[in-house]
Design a protein around this nucleic acid. Structure first.
Length: 708
DNA sequence: CATGGTCAAATG
DNA sequence: CATTTGAC
C-alpha cells in the first residue's frame, strides 16, 4: 500500500537569514540577505529573507544587485576563516533543530543542514490506539490542505474516519507536525514549514507550496490535480538532466502528463530502474524509506580556484591543503566528541584546467593535519604535475568518511559491534592497500591488515584470523564477535544487571586503569573491578613492549619517503602492529577472549591449533590471568552482582547509583576520563612531523601518565 | 576567477 | 574504488 506511512518534511524558512536575525535583534523584520565573499560585487547571496524577497531579491544575485533592488537591505556576511566561508554557525543551529526533532521520533533523516524527513506513522498509530485523536481546527492553525479547505478536510475526515482512514491519519499527522514546529520554535527560536504526505517525494513537494511558517497536507487523491500544475522539474530528482531528458523525450512540461505513458513505453526510453521509478512517482507512489540518520556520513572541505586564480605552484597547493586540512581536522575532532566515532577514510578531490574533477582516497587512522597535507600533496604531485613541473589546480577538496563508532563506546553491545565493524573495515582497507601500497601514499600500507602477496593468490591465513570470526555465514557460539553473540551470552549468564552497570564497567576499564594499575602494583585497594585487574595484568607486558619501542622514531621509522606509523610486535599473536592500531588490536584480543569465556584464556585462535607457541610475554600474562579468573565473563558478572548487593550512593557527576565501597574509584574514574580526553586532544593538536604517533586509547593514556 | 561549498546516492 | 548527478 502506498498510503500506509505518514511522512513529514520539515524545512527551515530561509534558515541562514533566521540564524542571523536571531543573533542580531535589531535586524528582525527587515529585508536581509546572507552573503559570502563580499569583496567582489557585494558577495554571493546564499539566503534571502521574506521581506527582501518581496522586493525582488533572489539567490544567485550578487550583493550589489540586491542593494539596487532593495536599498535598505541588510547584507549579513558569512565569516571568513582560513580563506574560506565559515558556515559553522549555521551547522550548529541546524544541529539544535535536529536535536529537537529527534525527541519526536528516531525515524528521522537529516536531508541537509536545514531539512529533515520524519516518519511519524508510529506516533499517529499510537495516538489512535490511545484515543488521543480528536482533531479540531484550533490544532491546525497554520495548516493548508491541497484540494480543499482546512475546515472542509477536518470535517470530512472526522465524519468518515472509518472509510477514510488514511486522510484521517494525515490530518492527525498534521496536528503532530504543528506540535513539532511549535516545539522547534519554542526551543530554538526558528520558524519552519512542513509538508505532510504518504511519502518523501510528496511531502517535500508539498512543503514548498506554502511558506514561510506554514504547513501543507497532501491527501493522496489530490495528487492528480496537484501534478496537473506542477512543473516536472519541481519534483525531487527531476531538477537536473534526467528531468530535461524526460521533458524532451516525452514532450511534457507538467508532472501529471507523465501518467499518459505506460510502464512499457517508459521502459523503451529509460533504463529499467528509472522507468519504474518514474512510472510510480507519476502516480504519487514512492517507497523510499526514511533512513534514520542524524549525522552526516562525510565531512569535507573544498574550494574552487577558477580561471586566473588557479593554483600553479606547489607551495600554493600546500598552503590550501593546509587550510582545508585544518578545517576538517577541527570539525572531525568535534565530531568525534559529539558522535563517538572516527573517520577511517580520506578523499582528496582535485580539478585541473577544464578537466572534470577527480578524486583519490586512502585509509586514515588518525586526525593528523600534517599527514593529511603531506599525503594530499603526494597525490596532487602524482596526478597533477605537468611535464614542466608546474600545476594548474582549479579545484581542491578534502573529505573524510567511512565513520565507525568510537571504541570508547557506551555499551557492551556497541563494544562488540565495533569489533565487528573494525574487522570488516580492515578487509576493505586491505584492498585499498594493495593499490596504494606500491605508490607509497596510504597511511597504513604497512599495517598488519595488508595481505601478503602470494603467488597462488589464495588468502593469507594469518590475515584471516582478524576477521574470520565475524564472517556472518560462520557464526558459532565460540567464535562470533557480534552484538547478537554478546547479548546471547548475557542471557546465558542470566544476569539481571542493567546496561548502565555494564557501561560503567566498560568505561572503568577504559578510563581508570592507569591509577588502578599503580595502586594494584602497590598492593593496595583490593577492590578493583574485574576489568581493571584484567587489564593491568593481562596487558602489562604489552605496555612494556610499547615503552621499549618508544625510541623507534630514531631507528626504524626514519624512512623519508614512507609516511607510516612505527610498528610493534604483539605479544599475543606475534603480529607486527602499526602503533596507532595497537589499541584496536589489543581490544580485538580482549574482546575475543571475553566472548570465548572458556576455561583456558587463550588470546589467539591460532594458538589453539598446532602452530608454534608464542613467546614468553604471553605465558607470563596467561598464567597470571588463570590465577585470577578462569572465566572472565563469569567473573565480570559475578563482580557486578556483588557490587549491586551493597548499599549505594548517587554520584554527583553522573547521577548514577554507585556502591559505597566503589565511590572513590568511581570518582577517580571521572577524573581519569577527563584526563583521558585532554590527552587525546593534545595528540591531535600537536603538529607532529615524522614523529612516533603515540598510541591512542588506554595505552596512550597509560604511557602518557606513567612517563610523566 | 565569478554562486560556492557541502552533502548523499547511484553507477560502472 | 572513482565518477556523475542532484540538491540545498
Amino acid at each position: 500500500m502506498c498510503t500506509n506511512r505518514i511522512i513529514v518534511l520539515i524545512d527551515m524558512d530561509c534558515f541562514y537569514c533566521q540564524v542571523e536575525e536571531n543573533l542580531n535583534a535589531n535586524w528582525k523584520g527587515k529585508p536581509l540577505a546572507v552573503v559570502q565573499y563580499n569583496q567582489w560585487r557585494g558577495g554571493g547571496i546564499i539566503a534571502v529573507n521574506y521581506p527582501a524577497r518581496d522586493q525582488g531579491v533572489t539567490r544567485h544575485m550578487r550583493g550589489d544587485e540586491a542593494r539596487k533592488k532593495c536599498p535598505d537591505i541588510i547584507l549579513a556576511k558569512v565569516p571568513q576563516v582560513r580563506g574560506k566561508a565559515d558556515i559553522s554557525k549555521y551547522r550548529d543551529a541546524g544541529k539544535k533543530v535536529a536535536d529537537v526533532l529527534v525527541t519526536f521520533t528516531q525515524q528521522l533523516e537529516r536531508a541537509s543542514v536545514d531539512e529533515a524527513y520524519l516518519d511519524i506513522t508510529n506516533i499517529v498509530d499510537k495516538r489512535i490506539q490511545e484515543g488521543n485523536d480528536i482533531i479540531t481546527r484550533a490544532q491546525l492553525p497554520n495548516t493548508l490542505v491541497v484540494g480543499s479547505t482546512t475546515e472542509g478536510f477536518i470535517e470530512n475526515v472526522t465524519q468518515n474516519r472509518t472509510f477514510d482512514e488514511y486522510n484521517f491519519k494525515l490530518a492527525l499527522g498534521g496536528v503532530i507536525a504543528e506540535e513539532i514546529r511549535r516545539k522547534v520554535l519554542e526551543v530554538t527560536g526558528y520558524k519552519c514549514s512542513a509538508g505532510i504526505a504518504h511519502n518523501k517525494i510528496l511531502a517535500k513537494l508539498v512543503c514548498g507550496l506554502h511558506k514561510p511558517n506554514k504547513q501543507t497536507i497532501l491527501p493522496q487523491e489530490a495528487v492528480p490535480q496537484l501534478y496537473a500544475e506542477i512543473p516536472l522539474k519541481k519534483v525531487q530528482g527531476l531538477g537536473g538532466k534526467f528531468g530535461n531528458k524526460i521533458m524532451q523525450r516525452l514532450g511534457v512540461k507538467f508532472m501529471g502528463e507523465v501518467t499518459k505513458f505506460s510502464q512499457n513505453e517508459l521502459g523503451k526510453i529509460f533504463d529499467e530502474k528509472s522507468a519504474s521509478w518514474l512510472y510510480n512517482i507519476a502516480r504519487g507512489i514512492d517507497n523510499e524509506p526514511v533512513n534514520a540518520r542524524l549525522v552526516s556520513k562525510s565531512i569535507g572541505s573544498c574550494k574552487q580556484f577558477a580561471g586566473r586564480a588557479a593554483l600553479c605552484e606547489k607551495q600554493e597547493i600546500e598552503h590550501w591543503l593546509n587550510e582545508l586540512a585544518e578545517d576538517i581536522c577541527e570539525r572531525l575532532t568535534k565530531d568525534m566528541k559529539e558522535n563517538n566515532r572516527k573517520a577511517h577514510q580520506i578523499v582528496v578531490n582535485f580539478g585541473q584546467d577544464d578537466e572534470v574533477h577527480s578524486s583519490k582516497s586512502y585509509p586514515m587512522n588518525s586526525y593528523d593535519k600534517g599527514r593529511i597535507v603531506s599525503n594530499g600533496l603526494k597525490i596532487i604531485e602524482k596526478y597533477c604535475a605537468k611535464s614542466d613541473g608546474t600545476y594548474r589546480i582549479t579545484f581542491l577538496g578534502l573529505s573524510a568518511g567511512n565513520f565507525q563508532e568510537f571504541k570508547k563506546g557506551n555499551e557492551i553491545t556497541s563494544f562488540f559491534k565495533n569489533m565487528q565493524n573494525n574487522a570488516i573495515n580492515r578487509k576493505s582497507i586491505e584492498n585499498v592497500s594493495a593499490l596504494t601500497n606500491a605508490e607509497n601514499i596510504a597511511d597504513d600500507n604497512d599495517s598488519i591488515y595488508s595481505r601478503t602477496t602470494e603467488e597462488d593468490s589464495s588468502i593469507d591465513t594469518d590475515s584471516l584470523i582478524f576477521y574470520e570470526n565475524i564472517n556472518p555465514e560462520s557464526v558459532t557460539r565460540d567464535n562470533c564477535l557480534n552484538t547478537a553473540a554478546a547479548e546471547s551470552i548475557m542471557n546465558e549468564v542470566n544476569c539481571d544487571i542493567s546496561r548502565d552497570s555494564i557501561r560503567e564497567e566498560i568505561n572503568t576499564y577504559e578510563g581508570i586503569s592507569p591509577m588502578q594499575t599503580d595502586e594494584f602494583e602497590n598492593n593496595e585497594k583490593p577492590q578493583e573491578s574485574f576489568f581493571i585487574k584484567y587489564f593491568s595484568t593481562h596487558f602489562k607486558s604489552d605496555l612494556d613492549t610499547l615503552k621499549s619501542n618508544s625510541d623507534c622514531e630514531d631507528t626504524n621509522c626514519n624512512d623519508k619517503s614512507l609516511d607510516s606509523d612505527c610498528s610493534i610486535q604483539c605479544s599475543y599473536c606475534e603480529k607486527t602492529i602499526v602503533s596507532s592500531e595497537y589499541q584496536t588490536h589489543l581490544d580485538y584480543h580482549f574482546a575475543l577472549n571475553l566472548v570465548k569465556n572458556e576455561s583456558e584464556p587463550i588470546m589467539n585462535p591460532r594458538a589453539q591449533s598446532s602452530r608454534k607457541k608464542p613467546v614468553s610475554p604471553k605465558k607470563v600474562s596467561k598464567k597470571k590471568v588463570k590465577d585470577q579468573s578462569q572465566k572472565p565473563l563469569d567473573a565480570f558478572f559475578k563482580n557486578i552482582r556483588v557490587i549491586q548487593d551493597e548499599s549505594s550512593e548517587v554520584c554527583k557527576e553522573c547521577h548514577k547509583a554507585v556502591p559505597i565501597s566503589e565511590l572513590d574509584i568511581h570518582k577517580d574514574y571521572h577524573l581519569a576520563k577527563k584526563l583521558h580526553f585532554e590527552i587525546n586532544e593534545k595528540q591531535q593538536s600537536k603538529g607532529v612531523k615524522r614523529k612516533l604517533h603515540e598510541p591512542k586509547g588506554i595505552l596512550g593514556f597509560l604511557q602518557s601518565s606513567t612517563t610523566l
